[in-house]
Write a protein that binds this DNA or RNA. Structure first.
Lengths: 254, 254
DNA sequence: TTTTTTTGTGTTATTTTAACACAATATAAT
DNA sequence: ATTATATTGTGTTAAAATAACACAAAAAAA
């Protein structure tokens, strides 16, 4: 039955969508000291996929990103960053043709899906506990999967995720990170663990503290009361205005 | 008559090219203390354009870049860097429709050109005096124009050039530059002027010298004999292996 | 009360950065 | 031939940044 949905969705795709171009979005989240990526499990296929789709002929690519993510995961108002156009031939060769489900698709749908696409990749960073992704009709599940143990995916989505992470890692040198990945109030150690997790390397605690505080994007709150068998750390929150300023203008950190 | 050429070129474009996607290349060169960009002057239009074109259906986008640049300017073996996908609607709205020449094109060509495109931008850096660009049949001229005084261009090529320069400027923090922009042998001051030109800011001479030498990508040659009314500076050349290593692995500089 | 763990902050050696200094020297001016 | 001018190679130094480690304070568990 899923084929019927896909066929309906792609009926007249030639008239609606910009041909040749697709769009995939790497939504990265953080929890339990692991960077995770939001993937959709395709119904009746044992494969995962990034939320992605096509761009309407009269639609900006940036706008399509928001629309596609909303449709496929329910998430809204994320901040997206374009990072690469994946343009190799043979990107989208195999999986559809080999599938036993392909034959059940309409001719329109098959034609559309079998054309050669280039895909533009966007990424976003979000707080896992603050969003509730909802799989769309094409997907049976929508899950946060750790990026270092990706499941089997369609096409080159594995490569797209890894490229996105490389970009995030490099951006860390110029832009702060954390506003969308940590709870409203957090400790410096929690922020440090996030950095260590993205960069996959340990950092000196004292030096990290001094350096991040000197960026002047954190506001110190009262002491943390609950918790571990040790001295209670201060809680901080981001100063959103100053944080946004650094995001816009960039500032070295690591 | 140019319309006939264009019509021929675009005949059956639907079958040959990936629809919806075009490609533009910002080739930057340096001479006389100005960063210049290679532009083509379109025949019978009083507008300039970046070398650009379309991607064959069975062709990698990276490969298309080389092919298009070769066809349109004669330049080969450049090192290209993809930097952005320009995806706004209305990018390619006006110039063709308004032109009196459009009516002379074949229906095929008009159809092809009137579809909505997104364009992927690549840039390259080259030594102006080492390449001899040749305009192709579609262009009456092929010239290096200073990026701070761009002439009227088609579409959003102005924005594409400026975006490319922004990327080059940011890359300067991570990768050396100069191998493709200076003569084989050059002085440190010449290299400094290049940096100042790209960054549009003055730098301290002594500090620049120490810093660039510490990168360990330059080889000192004999003294410069000819020239100015002052102490003769040393000549240097790039150590290509070490330079390439820095390009690959990146290293902070500025 | 003691132990364990982590925190906030301190110390110090080393390196980097930024700004300026000055003699050396190749040509031009006299 | 002598002096002036411009630019070079290198030196100096204060300030800032970096890296590695130190230690008492404190919250909870033992």
């Amino acid at each position: 039955m899923i084929e019927k949905k896909i066929s309906e969705y792609l009926e007249n795709a030639h008239e609606i969508f910009l041909p040749g171009v697709s769009l995939d979005v790497v939504i990265l989240g953080y929890s339990e000291n692991a960077i995770r990526v939001l993937l959709l499990k395709l119904k009746e296929y044992n494969l995962w996929a990034l939320p992605g789709g096509f761009i309407a002929k009269n639609e900006d690519v940036d706008a399509a990103t928001h629309k596609i993510v909303k449709e496929r995961t329910g998430l809204e108002k994320l901040y997206f960053n374009q990072f690469h156009l994946f343009g190799k031939t043979g990107r989208n060769a195999s999986f559809l043709q080999e599938s036993s489900h392909a034959a059940k698709l309409s001719a329109d749908a098959r034609n559309w899906l079998n054309q050669r696409f280039v895909t533009v990749g966007y990424f976003a960073l979000v707080r896992i506990d603050q969003v509730v992704p909802q799989p769309d009709i094409l997907s049976e599940a929508c899950d946060w999967l750790p990026v270092d143990q990706l499941p089997a995916t369609i096409l080159d989505h594995h490569e797209i995720v890894n490229t996105a992470i490389g970009h995030v890692r490099r951006q860390l040198n110029y832009f702060p990170v954390g506003l969308n990945l940590l709870p409203e109030r957090f400790t410096i150690s929690e922020l440090q663990r996030l950095y260590e997790c993205i960069l996959n390397q340990k950092m000196d605690r004292g030096n990290f503290q001094r350096k991040i505080l000197k960026l002047d994007i954190l506001v110190r709150l009262e002491k943390l009361k609950t918790g571990g068998a040790h001295k209670a750390p201060y809680l901080y929150r981001f100063d959103r205005d100053k944080y946004q300023h650094k995001i816009q203008h960039g500032i070295g950190f690591i």
